[in-house]
Design a protein around this nucleic acid. Structure first.
Length: 426
RNA sequence: AGAGGGAUGGCAGAGCGGUUUAAUGCGGCGGUCUUGAAAACCGUUGACUGUAACAGGUCCGGGGGUUCGAAUCCCUCUCCCUCUGCCA
């Protein structure tokens, strides 16, 4: 959520940013917002005055009662009744203004960083980096299979069993498939710990407050599984519980930056997002992901963003996968992010790029809802910047590993995984 | 799941209808003293809103009510603790 004070002081900048994000009617929405804000402040000033008067009278009555001057006290009481009525009216309209303001603010996306390219769709994303392997994309030999065939051939992932016990999009990993998943998770976690991230095992259900603080609620309510009896949401990503560890927290400067990594299953209803390109492991209701989260001082966040991207790139290099990095355009970037780089791995058999990671800087957008702040060197309380990225999501990595490494002799795993998996070939 | 108790500033903890502008202690910060440190002493120490700056206003788990006046009384929700039960 953007800060009202920022919008008030940077109106034109805000509108310009919203246009880049392809937000409709920015001028009109911001005008409306600021008009409401003015009314809110006028109302609050008046109400504060009424309350100040009431407080003074109450004190006076207290003194008179003590002194035994009952009649004078009674006389003052009559004045407060008028004040009380006015106060009630003002409080009610103040609440209404605040409610409307919050509703509008909830609908306004984060402003894009200046480096975000203009554009409406994924077509306008900018390729900023291609790995060495990506410059010579692997060509599959005759008879190469997509992963959804390979998993059957080697009996390592079973979608039909998943359908039987849960439903579509809940695969069952078996044998070497299960062991490879476990190996990849351990590899990702160990690498992150080596890079200085503190490992976190958070709950995988969260309450409503957490959903609001990281921005899943109120908009994306339908995207999360909901446990009705207890009012809990299954997390769509570890970002939600890990970032919420720092909700309503004022950190000390020396505690920064916060670097956390967590492995969790992720649950997504993906309502209405199924189509031709989501076969097999490309889109699931439940999948595993290792997520990195950082919290930094405002002045450091873009440098940190770059370091996080370098980190993700290093993992993909170690996995020997061809990948490229995209800088998302204003229209394609997520609601919350100021800057987002997508990592895509090339799937040779599908002849497609698969998104395996997004590394985003949210600046103060999440921190504002989280009330996540720190005391700066002048003792002032300031919002922090939050960042996160997948490092990495399992299914599409698995798909690419299977497809790109298939040979007549089986699927040859990259070297770094041998120790972790306990085998070299599937 | 049943019965009972509780939720107050970074922490501990008093206050139970009107100098609460929330006591006191610990911790933090600054100072005096000291070659330096410790100890002692003195001072200082929350968030939000608002203002050009003051002022003013809000916040004692959340929400609602009673009252001229609520941390304090009432209702309600949430969470925590103790005992009993169940259980990986």
């Amino acid at each position: 959520m953007l800060q009202l004070s920022f919008i008030r002081e940077n109106k034109e900048l805000t509108i310009k940013g919203l246009k880049k994000k392809r937000f409709k009617n920015p001028q009109q929405v911001i005008d409306e917002l600021l008009a409401l804000d003015n009314k809110r402040r006028e109302t609050q000033t008046e109400r504060d005055g009424v309350l100040a008067r009431s407080n003074a009278i109450s004190k006076e009555i207290g003194g008179l009662m003590k002194a035994g001057k009952k009649e004078e006290a009674e006389a003052l009481k009559t004045e407060t009744s008028t004040l009380k009525i006015r106060e009630k009216e003002l409080t009610e309209s103040l609440n209404n203004y605040e409610k409307s303001l919050t509703e509008i603010l909830y609908q306004i996306p984060n402003l894009p960083h200046e480096s975000v390219p203009e554009g409406a769709t994924a077509e306008d994303n900018e390729v900023v980096y291609e790995s060495a392997l990506a410059k010579n994309l692997p060509q599959m030999s005759e008879g190469a299979l997509p992963h959804w065939e390979l998993i059957k051939k080697y009996d390592i992932i079973d979608f039909d069993l998943g359908i039987k016990i849960s439903g579509a999009g809940f695969p069952v990993y078996k044998g070497k498939g299960a062991r490879l998943q476990r190996a990849l998770v351990n590899f990702f976690l160990d690498e992150a710990v080596k890079a200085g991230y503190i490992e976190i095992q958070p709950p995988i259900v969260v309450n409503e407050d957490s959903g609001y603080a990281t921005g899943q609620l109120p908009d994306k309510e339908g995207q999360m599984y909901f446990v009705n009896a207890d009012g809990l949401y299954l997390i769509p990503t570890a970002e939600v519980p890990i970032t919420n560890l720092y909700r309503d927290v004022i950190l000390k400067e020396e505690e920064l930056p916060i670097k956390n990594v967590g492995f969790t299953p992720c649950f997504r209803r993906e309502a209405g997002s199924w189509g031709a390109h989501v076969r097999g492991l490309n889109r699931l209701h439940q999948f595993d992901k290792v997520e990195i989260v950082q919290i930094t001082k405002p002045q450091n966040s873009y440098q940190t963003h770059q370091l996080m991207c370098d980190y993700v790139a290093s993992i993909l290099d170690k996995l020997e996968l061809p990948y490229r990095i995209l800088r998302l355009s204003g229209g394609d970037i997520s609601f919350n992010a100021a800057l987002c780089y997508d990592f895509e791995v090339y799937s040779a058999a599908q002849q497609r790029w698969l998104e395996v990671s997004s590394v985003s800087n949210f600046e103060t957008f999440q921190a504002n809802r989280l009330k996540l702040r720190y005391k700066d060197e002048n003792g002032k309380t300031q919002l922090l910047h939050t960042l996160n990225g997948s490092a990495l999501a399992l299914p599409r990595i698995l798909a690419a590993l299977l497809e790109n490494n298939q040979t007549p002799e089986g699927i040859k795993l990259p070297k770094v995984i041998h120790q972790y998996a306990g085998f070299e070939t599937i």
